[in-house]
Design a protein around this nucleic acid. Structure first.
Length: 359
DNA sequence: TCTGGGGTCCTAGGACCC
DNA sequence: TCTGGGGTCCTAGGACCC
């Protein structure tokens, strides 16, 4: 029973990527609960980036405050985040994917990518990817196989760890239909709650929902898009156009909330310097600045404004300091973020850059 | 239990113009 | 004096992802 060659989308996802990279360079950690987050100090304000499977058995997961994670898994080894190490490992994985015969590769993050390919046996192709990645990087990955990007992405969960799973129009509802809407890529806790307000709890209910109801609730673009997600429909095109960043931002959470004006200004200047370093490295002019503040305990405000295109650092810094003036005095500040928007190159403006709405 | 840091995209509403 | 309709740009905020 052979299938004819057709176009497939594969979603490659490294298993416990960050923890796996750490274990590779410290083999004595293999088989132990490992948690990576912040500066590796569980007394600081920080969250878990990745936990090894052994740590997950204690109920530790990504996004959890490090302090809580340490309490749940007292035996766990807690390590600081080492971004350059993960970037280097990621680059090798992506190069391996690009070297697969006939592969088009769209990178989604440090540890995942879409691979587009024409083949009559996508499972065999997926296993070849897994073998190549393992041989070259000693890292394990899972592969979702689909006839659309959304189906491939959702399939990966069923293949974890180290396996493959195929999700197509044929078995989508059978496999996903009874799952909660929040299982979908792009539906989080807030949207799933609003959907529940319309009696839509499962993927199948979303797939069959009234589009006008969704449009009224979420707008003309997002409403129909959510229903399409429920059906697993959408684009099948893996786009390998190089990513062009819209901007760069830096933010810090203060270990103690601060009030002092001078301290706040200094923090803004420090963040601005880092952002400018990123921008200068790209050689693109700044066309807007933004400030994000979080007052204790958790109220977030953002201020943005456009500026005339400029390469001048002093101009950018003074525009950022103007936004700093809008921070309420005497209110404890927990987080400060600075962002610079860059001019987009012409070809990106033409719509070649992959966007979420393009799915 | 107490919530990081890096991003992207969408929507609402106001200002402004014709 | 009171007022339509369409369009664009900008800002603030919300939501999502890894």
């Amino acid at each position: 029973m052979t299938e004819s060659a057709q176009s497939w989308v594969l979603h490659v996802d490294l298993d416990q990527f960050i923890a796996a990279v750490e274990v590779l360079r410290r083999p004595e950690l293999a088989g132990k609960p490992v948690i990576v987050g912040g500066r590796g100090d569980p007394t600081e304000r920080a969250v878990v980036s990745t936990a090894s499977y052994e740590a997950r058995a204690f109920g530790v997961g990504s996004g959890m405050p490090l302090r809580i994670a340490a309490r749940k898994a007292p035996e766990a080894i807690i390590l600081p985040v080492d971004a350059p190490a993960y970037t280097a490992a990621s680059d090798e994985v992506m190069a391996t994917l690009r070297s697969q015969p006939g592969a088009t590769v769209q990178v989604l993050g440090w540890d995942e990518a879409f691979v587009g390919v024409v083949t009559d046996d996508p499972e065999a192709y997926a296993r070849a990817i897994q073998a190549s990645v393992l041989a070259r990087t000693a890292l394990h990955c899972s592969v979702g196989i689909g006839d659309t990007l959304v189906r491939a992405k959702n399939a990966t969960d069923f293949g974890k760890p180290q396996g493959t799973f195929r999700l197509t129009a044929e078995n989508w509802l059978e496999v996903m239909g009874d799952r909660p809407t929040a299982a979908l890529w792009g539906v989080g806790s807030k949207i799933s709650r609003r959907l529940a307000g319309h009696g839509i709890l499962t993927v199948e209910q979303l797939a069959r929902a009234d589009e006008s109801v969704l449009a009224a609730e979420f707008g003309p673009k997002m409403g129909p898009w959510y229903r399409q997600l429920g059906r697993g429909d959408g684009s099948s095109v893996v786009d390998d156009t190089p990513w062009v960043a819209r901007g760069h931002g830096r933010e810090t959470t203060f270990q103690q909330d601060i009030v002092d004006r001078g301290e706040i200004e200094q923090a803004a200047r420090d963040l601005a310097a880092q952002v400018l370093a990123d921008v200068v490295a790209e050689g693109r002019p700044v066309v807007g600045v933004g400030l994000k503040v979080r007052y204790a305990p958790f109220l977030t405000k953002t201020f943005v404004h456009k500026i005339p295109s400029t390469f001048d650092r002093d101009t950018v810094v003074s525009e950022i300091l103007r936004l700093v003036q809008r921070i309420e005095p005497d209110r404890p500040l927990r987080l400060l973020g600075v962002r610079a928007e860059m001019a987009m190159p012409d070809e990106a403006r033409q719509g070649h850059t992959p966007t979420r709405s393009g799915w």
